[in-house]
Structures are given as C-alpha cells and as structure tokens.
Design a protein around this nucleic acid. Structure first.
Lengths: 194, 194
DNA sequence: CATAAAAATTGACATACATCACTAATTTCA
DNA sequence: TGAAATTAGTGATGTATGTCAATTTTTATG
C-alpha cells in the first residue's frame, strides 16, 4: 500500500471478524492493497471492462448496476463503509463486467487484485477462512433478498428495506431505491405518500 | 463413512474441480461423511430443526422450500446429483431451519456436519479453497436468478429456465416449476399452452 | 386394475403495478 | 445566486399476473 493517511484499524477489524490475523499476516495483506480515491459520480468499473479487482470501501457509497437493452437500470448492490464490491462473476472468472460500479458519494476504496487474493488465501489460512465465511454470508443475504421477491409485494419490500437499513436509505434517492426494489419510481412514490 | 457400495469417484471428481486433493486428503474427508438414503417424499430437513449438516447429493432430486404464513410455498433450490443442499443460514450460524428439504426422487446423500467441515477446512487448505470457490459460484448463480426477477417477466423467466436446465425441468412438475419461478400454476399453465 | 389423490388446464374477474404525460420540488454547478 | 438538470409526485389508463371456481388429465396406491 502506498503512503497514505488512511486509518487501517477499521480494515483490520473487518478482516478479524471471523478469526484473527497476526500483525505480520495483516501486514502481508495490506502490502497487496492499492488505495483509490473517487469523486461522486465517478465510475469505478465500466461495463465490458475486465474485472481484476475487488474493492473494500473505507469511506463512501457506491452502487453496482445492470442496464437492460431497453435502458432500464437495476441496482444489484448498495455498498457503504466496510462492504466489498465488484462484479463477482467477472472477478472470479476473469471475464468482462456486466455491471457498472458508480460512486454516489466521494469515496476511498482498497483494491485487491484477483491474483493477490488467491496468493494471500493460499498463504494465509485465516484469510481463506475469512473469504469463505464472507462468501457464505453474502449468499445468505442475497437469498434473503430473493425471498422477499417471492413472498412480498413492492410496498412490503420497501418497508422491509426501511426497517433493515434505516440509515442507508437516507443517503439514497427514491429513484435508486426503486431501482433496487424492482419497481418504478412512480409506484414507489405512491407508497411513500401514505 | 460406513461400509457402502457407493462409488466415490463422482464425489472425488466434484471436490477436485477447483484444485486437486491427494489420496490421503480425500480419505480424510470421506471419513467424515455419513451416508443417508431417502425415499421419495421423505423429508431430510424440517422447519425449525437445528441444521448441523450440509448434504451432497450422490443420487436423486431434492428441493428446499419456504412456506409463508398464508400457506404459499416457494422453492428456494432444486438440487440434483453433484449439488449441495442445506439451509445455509441455519447451517453457518447453527440456527433452526426456516426451510424444509424434501426428497422428490429416491436419493442417496452424503452428510457433512458443520464441525467436520470446519475441522477439515482448517486441516486441508485445498478443501477450504474448494468451499470458498463453491460459495462464490453459488452466489453468482443466485445473483443471476435475482437478476431475472428484475429484468424479465414470468414467461421469460420460464423460458430461460427451460433453456438453462432442459433435463432438470423434465423431472419436475409444473406446479413446482411455478413455485420456483414465483408465479401461480395457473399463470404458468397459460404460458405452456401456446 | 380401480379408485383416490394430485396435477394441469381453462374461463371469468380482480388487482398490483407499469406506462405515459404532466407539474412541482429539489439539487447542481457555472 | 439563478438557470438547467435531476428528482419527486400525481392522475388516467393499460397490462401482466393473481384469485376463485370448475373440469379434465395424470399419477399414486391398495
């Protein structure tokens, strides 16, 4: 990691959430990290771009989006501090991205390349364990999200989102909440009236 | 693993798909496996049951389902030969299951306890790697499924499912395909008419 | 094989949500 | 600060899909 004023405590706490890394191990990880600073509206990852990094968010708010042929845009993920974001499919298979990652607030992210991650996981069992747990947790959360599509109508999905992420939704326009929930902004607007 | 006539080649091939295990490593894994044979309609996992195993399917077809308060049943996953199935959330957090896992065809499954899995992953780096990759792949597939809800109407979702799993859908009733796709059987029936 | 049970089909009608068109409010940034 | 761009709200109307009810077809089982 290049010289920076970034406080790494947060990152270390994050990595230690399932099992603890030694000081040395953490240092080895940090040496593979590249820092990127981004301005609001900046695009971190374009569609059709080769995805060789995953990004941990130290500060800021980003979204990954998928744009349909007809121009409709869907939000795959909101990502704030302590979240990871990338196009997983493209990252793991070294393919081109189907998603775009855009910065909604000025941000600082830690970039970890695919190669670095594989090297580190092979060297550091605890890190492999971390990413294994992390992947499982992400899966479970996504499954929960899918389940709300199967069980709940748009208004209920909106209310559940408000309950689960009360602070997040205040940082995000209703237009984008709609794009995440899978409804039009008009429909969402009619919910919030009442 | 208790004495059995099961052919383990298939299981070994499965585990070797991302990186190869040695004969010894594979033996260690197999020693943690318990075999279960199930009849059609048999329930492998009930709702509210503590989930201490994940199951690899050697033979057969199972589904995991979530039942809403009003009785509507949604299919979370179809699982055939070479798939793993469990209630991930409950398994990883040692909680009670929200899903039910039911056998749709006579089956033979390999049960791996949570404890065994963690022990094995700690001992065998290649296995940790396997489950990490596996979790990532599952995540990507689930994300793709979610995306079809955001981008496609019910008929398109049905057609995509037919394209992707042409053989699977022949083993499954339309009622259940509907419960997977998030439509009523009546609506699905109207698609297949034409 | 016969009977019961489950699954599939079909029609009539209800409803949640989308679309389109317009106006109002808010934010951006020159 | 003020004009332009973006976001939000609202009504009228269309459409995909759900609901209910009845019938037919297929599958399961003694």
């Amino acid at each position: 990691m290049q010289g920076t004023e970034s406080n790494l405590n947060q990152f270390r706490n994050h990595l230690d959430q399932f099992s603890t890394l030694s000081d040395l191990q953490f240092k080895v990880v940090v040496d593979h990290i590249k820092i990127r600073k981004l301005k609001k509206h900046e695009v971190l990852l374009h569609e059709d771009q080769v995805v060789d990094h995953t990004f941990w968010i130290n500060k800021g708010l980003l979204i990954s989006t998928f744009t349909q042929d007809d121009g409709r845009e869907h939000i795959i993920q909101f990502a704030i501090e302590n979240c990871w974001i990338t196009d997983q499919q493209a990252y793991y298979n070294q393919e081109r991205s189907k998603f775009r990652i855009t910065c909604l607030e000025d941000a600082e992210v830690f970039a970890l390349s695919y190669e670095s991650r594989e090297t580190l996981c092979a060297e550091i069992g605890e890190l492999s364990h971390f990413f294994r747990r992390k992947a499982n947790d992400s899966f479970v959360k996504l499954q929960q999200r899918l389940l709300t599509y199967l069980t709940s109508d748009a208004q209920q999905r909106f209310e559940l989102l408000c309950e689960e992420y009360p602070t997040l939704i205040q940082r995000i326009s209703k237009k984008r909440l709609a794009a995440y929930l899978g409804v039009t902004r008009e429909t969402l607007s009619r919910f919030t009236r009442s």
